[in-house]
Design a protein around this nucleic acid. Structure first.
Lengths: 123, 123
DNA sequence: TATGTATGTCGTAAACATACGTCATAGTAT
DNA sequence: ATACTATGACGTATGTTTACGACATACATA
């Protein structure tokens, strides 16, 4: 009875666990890229070709707090690294992790190829 | 005063508009792929190599209502097409739209390449 | 030591996403 | 016509994300 209640409570928003590891992995990566701010942060880190030791929020239309939050998401996912350098924090892309994420993403994108409705309907 | 209130109200969750068109486009595509159910749906549509005329929820660990909702998201984004075929609806991938989305996604993924911290820090 | 500057942390409000039950609709078949 | 079946539409509860202000912390420098 108690167990059933817990299961039912957890069911909302946790059905993701019922899908394959790979599907979850792709979804996780896609989620990281699903906000323009995080795209902008990654692009900025790539463009500067060096660590960002300064306030990235100055080049983004967001408050420092919000940017920090997005950075934290990217960092906890491993996509970027951040090292404290005196007064500032040096953020940069973890190319190894990012390349692996790209590989997973591209594999999926190329798997989605279908010959549709060859005989059943008109779409 | 009234205008200011509206602007302030709209500011939450609409900062996305302040980013570039391309950043928004990538984020939009990524968001579609950010849930395992939608990945699973796309993979299933690709695997069957034909229209799905039946209840996709039967091969997914989700209720019919929820699956229908995910299908609607993919459809309104144009990634899949759905034609009513009598009693059932024939869903299939719009390969042209999907290929374009893949292109946009891959372009971004390959743009994120940085030589990090060559001289500034140790990450 | 005090002061300034840069960053992280916490709390919170509002918007959005997920999941599902229930009802309505529309075609199929008896 | 009536019952059956498959789907869409609507409403709703719960969880998550986004955005930011306010406070705490930590280092550099005067």
């Amino acid at each position: 009875m108690f167990t059933t209640y817990i299961v039912l409570t957890l069911m909302t928003y946790t059905k993701a666990l019922a899908f394959s590891q790979e599907q979850q992995e792709v979804a996780r990566i896609a989620k990281l890229l699903s906000h323009p701010a995080r795209i902008a942060i990654l692009e900025h880190l790539a463009e500067t070709k060096s660590c960002i030791s300064g306030d990235i929020s100055k080049v983004l239309p967001l408050s420092r707090t919000t940017v920090s939050q997005h950075l934290q998401e990217l960092k906890s996912a491993g996509l970027i690294k951040g090292e404290i350098e005196g007064l500032t924090v040096c953020y940069c892309i973890d190319q190894e992790v990012f390349d692996e994420a790209r590989k997973v993403m591209e594999q999926l994108l190329h798997r989605i190829k279908s010959v549709c409705c060859s005989d059943q309907c008109d779409c």
